[in-house]
Design a protein around this nucleic acid. Structure first.
Lengths: 334, 334
DNA sequence: ATGAAAGCGCTAACAC
DNA sequence: GTGTTAGCGCTTTCAT
């Protein structure tokens, strides 16, 4: 039925070993032999069986990628970075969505290890202790992309979220704001709770400003939530005059909320976002935003993984990529 | 090193066959034996090797997914539909981006077949003859999702693009417009060239309206291209008073172009889009749009693939899903 | 430079 | 209900 390495060997009057050598680019084959084998391969339309190869060699040249949700732009961008580098190194990718459920993440990890992936890139907004342990026990290398591992025991690729958020809030403070709304997704997500919020408080503190818990809205990172956050915060007795938004969607919701209420951005209300997806340019006013290099995080994570998989020495297993603020129109420039 | 089925068999004092049976849920195992085996599995942390299993059974429970670009919302949405159903049927997914390059698509097809996937879901805006042939020769089932196969030989899942576009254009015509801009991505993409454009012409014709090639701008489906299309078309001596946009991004670009020029949408200019992503609600005015059920297309495609893979009889290999128009604010309601 | 042969870890008849 | 035994298609020593 399907043609195997044995068929090729027979047709070419050589052994399977020789066919294997030419298929794998081994130099120890006489050019004439190689040519002959190649011809037979072509003629028979032989296609090596990667599963058999994987069983024999204990390498599958496929890596697992676990992310919360591929339909979400943030993770899709990251996945693209991973895939591009994977392709470059001839790896394929098994992609799965966890929806940020711990049990699904755990189960996915198990499935992928069962499939004998050579490594795993994982993105999780909340790395639990149980996940840490499973990852530590993994027979193959794992790198966390855009995800914080508080145990510092797993390889990671991130930016300095605290510093980035601090700079963003500071920009608002410099513009004279004293009441700044803080709107993000769940604080249980490490990046929101341990970095963005901490930076928010620190920046306020450093500027001698009071922290008002009423200005903090952290529930879900969506457009509708941005709209809702505006409704709630703007109804306060002393509403914010500026907002830090944890994502572009949140920022756009906030801005539309303000505009629908007759406010102008940035004249009346200023908003700084934290993401800089292509959406940032697709609103009026265009978003001033901390640029989160999602694609690069994915790409670097995958590159790091290739090194780990081939046991190359790695300088640092906790990579921090540079970030910057993209100045556009939702924050006044001084 | 790693524990195999043989280790479990030895520890449990049974044969590999029995272990295999309990692992695969075969009922022909005495409950007591099953329990004993399960305990050993647990104790030894045995994890079946899917590669070995795949080699022996000739099934990998993984399917290939080839799409143009996962970072593009359209394809990501579709991919999510595929993945959800795949998970439901216990398949994993090997995901790869083709960037809509024929040679990459071909090569990806080959790689995946080499990896012994049990089936393939593919999305391609332009199914070439060569691809058709490769797909026809495939040893495993393939289904095209949101992609048209003009040879009618491969299983597909789509909506009636012609009809949907026809309805959209008609809506504009009913609102009294006689000069309607047509802005989409490349006409070489089957859906644009053979359906949307054809529907545009037909609708105009049916209404006794002339077709002006100058009103047709088909280059690239992006926000910037929408902006650019506005610049070009609005500069015409007799500029369009309404636009059909092939995607949400295009529509938003068009709208922003109009707004930046001091026009109001939908008062001065009406725009109907063809996609209805979550972006549609994130602009002012919100987009009236043909709802392209990307997630469903992906989900149904994967479901169809499961049937094909298990050789179940299939009623129709060319599924057409229903569509509808989501009426919002970029088109006046009568 | 090439071949022979022993697995890789599992499933799937086929016996008993 | 359980065990035995061939493979599945390839890589990889080890000889030669």
């Amino acid at each position: 039925m399907t043609v195997t390495i044995y068929d090729v060997a027979r047709e070419a009057n050589v052994s399977m070993a020789t066919v294997s050598r030419v298929v794998n680019g081994n130099q120890n084959v006489k050019p004439a032999t190689r040519k002959k084998v190649l011809e037979v391969i072509e003629r028979l339309e032989y296609r090596p069986n990667a599963v058999a190869r994987g069983l024999a060699s204990k390498k599958t040249t496929t890596v697992g990628v676990i992310i919360p949700d591929i339909a979400n732009n943030v993770y899709a961008e990251l996945a693209r970075g991973v895939e591009d580098i994977a392709t470059m190194y001839r790896y394929n990718i098994i992609l799965a969505n966890s929806d940020q459920h711990e049990d699904k993440e755990l189960q996915l990890l198990d499935t992928m290890l069962g499939k004998q992936v050579d490594g795993i890139v994982m993105m999780s907004d909340e790395v639990t202790e149980k996940m840490q342990q499973t990852m530590d026990h993994s027979p193959v290398p794992i790198v966390l992309a855009g995800s914080v591992d508080e145990s510092q025991t797993i390889a990671t690729v991130n930016i300095d979220y605290f510093q980035a958020a601090y700079e963003a809030i500071s920009l608002l403070i410099q513009n004279g704001h004293t009441r700044i709304g803080f709107v993000t997704g769940p604080l249980s997500y490490t990046i929101n709770g341990k970095f963005k919020l901490a930076a928010y408080k620190k920046a306020l503190q450093d500027a001698g400003l009071p922290i008002d818990e009423a200005l903090i809205a952290a529930e879900e990172s969506s457009y509708d939530m941005g709209l809702e956050a505006w409704e709630i915060l703007s109804a306060l007795e002393q509403p914010p005059t500026a907002y830090f938004a944890g994502s572009d969607e949140l920022a756009i919701g906030l801005i539309h909320g303000a505009q629908d209420a007759g406010k102008n951005v940035p004249e009346d209300i200023e908003v700084i976002s934290f993401e800089n997806s292509k959406l940032a340019r697709m609103v009026r006013p265009q978003l001033t935003s901390v640029a989160l290099p999602l694609y690069d995080i994915g790409a670097v994570a995958m590159r790091l993984l290739t090194k780990l998989m081939s046991k190359e020495p790695v300088e640092d297993e906790a990579v921090i990529l540079p970030h910057r603020i993209e100045h556009r129109q939702s924050v006044k420039s001084k």
